[in-house]
């Protein structure tokens, strides 16, 4: 993903309130759009069936609202991204323009996928998300700030405590979310483990 070289301590952008609990990854990107061998074109299909009816006409959806066309921080409720492990879901949202998530809670695999892509998915309280959504509904312009170092999300001068798993937080701040290189550094120990594991050495 972009900005790979540097850490991302502070993410700013317009908030996009998307209400609802248990929004699954099939809704974020319907399976029929996963017939692809790259992630590049997925942005157009983010929330496709929620944004368009069967005739292809636009439905009433925040991502169809021109006033939010520049929105880049998705505000969600509980258990966002549950269901399928498809990385296509955060990829589709990233390619649509999303650069961060603020929500009450996230499904585990989705949160891990966001981390792999360098996208913060931070948790705030129910009251906080209610307030943040209210602010963004009333006025589509305010800039939201996710501050990972200080651990808050703010809008219009009000700050709300925000958290995410410590490993993810540090990876984002230090710009190390692409872990392949780090994992390769343990290669010698991995080879040793391969020789040691009972089921890989034929239980000898």
């Amino acid at each position: 993903m972009a900005d790979k070289s540097a850490g991302r301590s502070v993410i700013k952008g317009m908030g996009l309130p998307l209400m609802g609990n248990d929004i699954d990854t099939d809704r974020i990107i319907p399976a029929r759009f996963m017939k692809c061998v790259t992630f590049d074109g997925l942005g157009a299909y983010a929330f496709f069936d929620e944004r368009y009816d069967v005739n292809g006409d636009q439905k009433d959806h925040i991502m169809n609202d021109e006033r939010y066309a520049e929105g880049s921080i998705l505000l969600v409720n509980k258990n966002f991204g549950c269901g399928s492990s498809r990385e296509h879901a955060p990829q589709a949202l990233y390619h649509w323009g999303i650069r961060g998530f603020v929500g009450e809670s996230f499904a585990e695999i989705f949160a891990g996928n966001c981390n792999s892509l360098g996208l913060p998915a931070v948790r705030v309280s129910r009251e906080a998300i209610g307030k943040l959504m209210e602010i963004c509904m009333a006025n589509p312009s305010p800039v939201l700030t996710i501050d990972l170092k200080e651990g808050y999300v703010s809008a219009e001068g009000t700050a709300f405590p925000a958290s995410l798993p410590e490993g993810y937080r540090r990876a984002l701040i230090e710009g190390t979310w692409d872990v392949t290189q780090t994992l390769l550094e343990g290669s010698g120990e991995v080879d040793r483990k391969y020789r040691e594991l009972p089921y890989l050495r034929g239980f000898t």
Binding site: T38, G167, Y168, T176, T182, G186, E189, K193
Partner: peptide
């Protein structure tokens, strides 16, 4: 299966068996 603790505090875990199918793998190979 733990290899070591990574600088960010997560564990590096050895994966003994990896299974693969056509939908979620092409981008990984790329």
């Amino acid at each position: 299966h733990r290899i070591r603790t990574l600088p960010d505090g997560m564990d590096q875990i050895f994966i003994g068996l990896h299974l693969l199918h056509e939908v979620t793998s092409p981008q990984a190979f790329r």
